[in-house]
Design a protein around this nucleic acid. Sequence first.
DNA 1: GGCCGACGTGTAAGCGTTTACAGCGTTCTG
DNA 2: CAGAACGCTGTAAACGCTTACACGTCGGCC
Lengths: 339, 339
Amino acid sequence: MSNQRPSTIDDVARLSGYSVATVSRALRGLPNVAPATRARIEEAADRLQYQPDPAAIGLATGRSRAVVMALPNLSSWYFGQIMAGAEAVLSESGHDLLVFTLPPTADKRLESFRSPTVARAAGFIMVDLQFSSQEAMTLQATGLELVSIGTSIGGFGTVRIDDIGVAEMAVTHLTELGHRRIGLLAGQNDDPFHFDVPRERQLGYRSALIQAGIPLDQDLEQPGNFSVQGGADAMNTLLDLDDPPTAVFAMSDEMAFGAMQAARSRNLVVPDDLSLVGVDNHDLAPVVGLTTIDQSADEHGVLAAGLLIERLAGDSPDPVNLQAPIRLITRQSTAPPPS
Amino acid sequence: MSNQRPSTIDDVARLSGYSVATVSRALRGLPNVAPATRARIEEAADRLQYQPDPAAIGLATGRSRAVVMALPNLSSWYFGQIMAGAEAVLSESGHDLLVFTLPPTADKRLESFRSPTVARAAGFIMVDLQFSSQEAMTLQATGLELVSIGTSIGGFGTVRIDDIGVAEMAVTHLTELGHRRIGLLAGQNDDPFHFDVPRERQLGYRSALIQAGIPLDQDLEQPGNFSVQGGADAMNTLLDLDDPPTAVFAMSDEMAFGAMQAARSRNLVVPDDLSLVGVDNHDLAPVVGLTTIDQSADEHGVLAAGLLIERLAGDSPDPVNLQAPIRLITRQSTAPPPS
DNA sequence: GGCCGACGTGTAAGCGTTTACAGCGTTCTG
DNA sequence: CAGAACGCTGTAAACGCTTACACGTCGGCC
């Protein structure tokens, strides 16, 4: 019951009768260690419950075992799913998950990229973020293993979905139901991150309309900022139109929820008066009966973390681009337009 | 444009003309450094853009600058709010936020507490978790600064709400509306974490009923596991009763959402046929018009992180217990019982 | 005027790893 | 059979900080 000083590599060396160098090599699975030696050392190590000190390793190698995850925020549903997925994989392989929200201004971002904690981490996962080439260069210069979720960046491993396809799938679902006047709840107009997901979904929305022979209308595209409140506001703008839409595609479920609220406050019934499609398959989508495109968000985290670990292990040479699956889930929020 | 080796304390010492010891003292704001000296050193430091290496500090001091946050999961709304609040405060003071989900079995938990990353962190915030005294001792032995959110543990700083009061407030709201048959959506029956929040809310629920002169009924208390699905299941059980409740208090908004869904699937109208109160003031509570008790979750994270930082700075001697405010927000999900 | 304490500073020994290099038997090779 | 090559192991120098200790220098005090 003594105050157990944690044992060091020296203790293991002493107990096993080898030098610290050999112990280090043996325990890390490096070649050029006699099998018998390795066995004896391993036995000594776990007899002493030896656990290498991350700080010491960090000092000696210049890299920590932490994986840094940069997100726009920590509180939205989608990001929670991603963190959860990534954490599960990373903890499995003995990595720590360091989360932080990215400052909105470019110089503050650069500053944080240069901070030793980030620069000397093992890997870096960024979510739904995009930035100047200078920022990308800074990050590359750190020698970090880089993975991006939701958006493609040169030199990064990438996990994303077919964002154009998502929008097409959603809007086509609406046109097939007979809708001809279809609104769009989009991102923000002045996005500091130059996030390209909204752009691509907008593209998909337009392309689906064109394919259905429906004319575009600028007024039908409203920024909703990917938030509940933003969705409600945008929906209200749409409903105030002279010729309001009979259906709306929201780029995220949270915006769709806001839209639902806006519709209800005007005594409109979903889907009788208004059809609604979102994206995400949020936990609460089934609760309110929202038709949506599932993109299994937690899987994004799992894939990104897996990619990172593979590359850290030295497998998979070049940056890989993974595309996660999507699928339409129809619920009660979509129906043919009112006649 | 050279490959900038990051500058070390040695560089600063050389440029300023002092020894590394003095530089170290000056930069950390320790006493016994002449003001002029400090100024010169600081100038040299930021001319070189010096940033101390966390690994080296960790090795030398035996403590990292990371704050570890242990949560039951990363994906539920409440935990997202807490992380967000804590991260904002911690990043401000230069601490890293390391998140991980706690393994459900006691020995795995003990193991992770002993891991050097945790044991040598600066602080530890645990959320909605509770455990054996052995686990608590292990944690104390690490010398970490400890803060618990949502539940009280000896030796920990604590941030929580009056959980009994929350339930009383909610249930009293219902009794005042005239309800006499009030159900409870509770936690799980076999909770591996021995979480005491559900116990206290149960206490408050019962006490409010007793105060209103309403007899208790075991059948009206159903476990809902704090999840949407669990809430739906529990609600269905309640509705299958011979004498179903006219109102339900859910210990979390997410369970209340599930209950709403269950009610709707039976063509019951909220609040005409059934009143519902939750806890959290979830982002989507306004969307579905849920009456709830706001506990400003993100504030919990802010307070906990603040507490931790204060104690790390050496202020506030003893473990502090903070109580966050709560308030009833009435929306459209509550009304007098059907006549 | 000598002594003491406070103040400012430097020297050097850790902290616990990794890794370049060297050394030593064995086994190949020609 | 000499010498090269290889396999295994050890020595010791980093890595970039903190901190105990020692060493002036100065002012104040009796």
